[in-house]
Computed example of a mutant assay.
Amino acid sequence: MLGAHDSTRDAGRAQRWAARLAWPLLGIVISLGLWALAARYISDVEVIRAAFAPQAGLKALVHLLGSGELWPHISTSLQRIAIALLLAMAIGVPLGLCLGLSPLFARISGPTFQFLRMVSPLSWMPLAVMALGVGEAPVVFLLSFATVWPIMLNTAAGVAALDPAWMRLAQSLSATRWETIARVVLPGCISHILTGFRLAVGIGWIVLVPAEMLGVSSGMGYFVLDTRDRLAYDELMAGIVVIGGLGFALDWLARTISSRWTQRGKQG
């Protein structure tokens, strides 16, 4: 009886996994079909149509990964986004705490922050190059500028959502300002901070590619620009696939960290 029960349970688990994988696989098949259809009508030149076809792009992807040509660009892009996110966290979280804890600071700085937030990060490219020169610094600046806002605003929202009773309890225990922030405010709004971080990852990855077309010699943005100049359209499509795959993986990682922290908080 136990063996039959275990077999039924394993079969049900296998069916659930199959159902969970079936829809994403169907989406991938449909996407490849649309890709192939679009490649047929992208140009009247047969060579260009063949270069944009899925089989050409995927073949180029396997070659680029196997030869190691693409890995330095991937590594450089991931390093840049990591540095930018660390800077955005170091700036955005304290600013968000100030906005949430100080109504006066929020009234003074709020309009300025909202104005700057609505300026496209890419519009700062010329000024970033003039001020920081050509190289890593302007790219990291643009990424940090793009990613700081969701972290800052979500931190402020987390502070606003805190239970006022927690703050009154900290005051009744004669906690200092820093003790209140470290032991009450930050733990209470960490889920909002992680949500802002996830949003920042998505925004930063989108801005990364055009930012890396700014006078650097490595990175996925540079790789896409270089393939265009070399008319290597199959490699260009391979680069686009890699950019999408890496962005998906980064978002999945940020989402997993956020959900696990939330579950841990509920269990605690």
Rank of each mutant, 00 (worst) to 15 (best):
58 L>E: 08
45 V>N: 13
267 Q>L: 15
93 V>L: 06
159 V>W: 05
75 S>D: 06
117 R>P: 07
231 L>A: 14
126 P>W: 02
86 L>S: 00
166 W>H: 15
75 S>E: 07
112 T>D: 08
53 A>Y: 14
44 D>L: 13
199 L>A: 08
6 D>K: 06
14 A>L: 12
166 W>N: 15
72 P>N: 02
215 G>A: 14
190 I>A: 11
215 G>M: 09
191 S>Q: 05
39 A>M: 01
3 G>N: 11
57 G>M: 05
123 S>R: 11
250 L>W: 10
226 D>F: 14
8 T>K: 11
238 A>I: 01
74 I>A: 00
23 W>A: 12
110 G>K: 06
146 A>K: 05
54 P>H: 15
43 S>W: 02
228 R>V: 15
27 G>R: 03
6 D>N: 04
114 Q>D: 08
24 P>T: 10
251 D>E: 10
53 A>H: 14
163 D>L: 05
209 V>C: 03
105 F>C: 09
62 V>F: 15
11 A>T: 07
158 G>D: 09
108 I>V: 13
80 R>Q: 08
191 S>N: 11
40 R>F: 04
242 V>I: 12
165 A>S: 15
148 V>Q: 11
260 R>K: 12
194 L>Q: 08
164 P>W: 13
14 A>Q: 11
232 A>K: 02
90 A>M: 08
42 I>E: 04
221 G>C: 11
122 L>N: 01
256 T>V: 01
41 Y>E: 00
221 G>V: 13
199 L>H: 10
260 R>H: 11
39 A>C: 06
50 A>G: 13
